[in-house]
Amino acid sequence: MKSFQQQLADLGKRLGKNIDELPSLDTAEDYATRRKMYDAQANQDVAKLQLETKQARIQALYGASELNENWTFDRLIEDSQDVKEAISIAKSFIAAHQDPKWRNSRAHMMLFYGDYGRGKSHIAGAIAHQLIQQFEITVLYRQLQTLLELRFFSYDYQAEDKASMKFREISKQLLEVDLLILDEVCVNQTILKQSAQSWLGSLLRQRCADNKNCILITNHHVNDLPKALGTYCFESIKEYETYKVHFQGPSRRGSHESEQASDSSHYQPNHF
């Protein structure tokens, strides 16, 4: 019976190849070296795929959030003490997400209040950008008045714009998203309509029960919110671990200069 080497030589002759010119079989050392090389390449490919997949997920989160792309920390101007304090609290709020116990303990709310153009929406957006990038947190940014108008038109079931279906879809997102940012709460209104008070209060209570965080942005002073939002809605806010941040520096609208925000580890709730 012919050996494997003889069979290989016969096959080489039929193919017009000289067995002596063929590369020799790998030694155990060669195999181990190549195995390490293949494993390293496979690990690189997996890491690259994971990075591409993460980037795709992050882009999808950005697409669903409706955030302003310019609302980032590096575009903020630290020109007053209230902004510096807000950035300090914001970065501490972000850092707290590293602790799973903190994230699962209860719902947290940041309440930004102050006059127009003070940077409230910008800092809220910067928080959202950072949470998406660092923790892949789902975020939804909405102006409250826009939601209330959509809610109003959703009662017209004969309308052809499918407002009722759109409102049902967004209502689901409002409940499920990890961080909900509601801007311009009670804008141009002394008191929120009673039906809107009930709807917003129920939304906040449900999110609180599910340990979902919120950022509310308003130009009302915090002392006026019980009247502006109504008792039921304001009591819903008090169910959260609440952090009030007062913006009272100069208006910053129209300015595009920026400085690097400072870091801080202070993050303590200031309950009502």
Rank of each mutant, 00 (worst) to 15 (best):
A56H: 13
R75V: 07
E78M: 11
N104L: 12
A56L: 09
L49E: 15
E66G: 08
A95L: 06
K48T: 02
E66A: 12
E52N: 10
I87C: 08
N70I: 06
A47F: 06
A64Q: 12
A47K: 12
L49K: 15
A56D: 03
E21C: 04
Q50D: 12
R57N: 12
A40F: 11
A47C: 03
D74V: 03
E29D: 11
K54W: 00
T53Q: 15
K54I: 00
S65P: 00
A47M: 05
N70Q: 04
S88D: 03
D39L: 02
K84H: 05
A95H: 03
N70E: 05
A90P: 10
M37G: 09
P100T: 09
E52T: 04
L51C: 08
I58M: 10
L51T: 13
R75D: 09
L76I: 04
I58A: 13
L49R: 15
E21T: 02
D26Y: 14
D99E: 05
N104I: 05
D79E: 04
V46G: 04
I87A: 15
D26K: 14
K54D: 07
S65I: 04
Q59N: 13
E21I: 02
H97Q: 13
S92M: 01
L67H: 01
Q50M: 05
S80V: 05
A42C: 08
L49Q: 15
W71T: 02
D26A: 09
S80G: 09
S65Y: 06
D45L: 14
L49S: 13
Q44H: 05
A28G: 08
N43K: 15
Q55K: 09
E52R: 13
T33Y: 07
T27M: 14
D20Y: 10
T33D: 06
N43T: 07
F73M: 00
E85V: 11
W102L: 06
V83W: 06
I58Y: 09
A42Y: 08
A64C: 08
E66I: 09
Q55Y: 10
L51W: 07
S65L: 10
D82V: 08
N43S: 11
M37S: 13
Y31L: 10
I58K: 13
L22W: 02
K36M: 15
K54Q: 04
L22V: 00
A56R: 14
D79M: 06
P100C: 07
N43I: 04
S92Q: 01
H97T: 10
K91Q: 02
A64P: 02
Q59M: 09
Q81T: 01
A96I: 01
D99K: 06
A90H: 10
T33R: 01
W71A: 00
A47T: 03
Q41T: 15
Y62T: 01
E52H: 11
A90R: 10
H97I: 08
L22S: 05
S65A: 13
K101P: 00
Y62P: 02
D82R: 10
S88G: 06
K36Y: 04
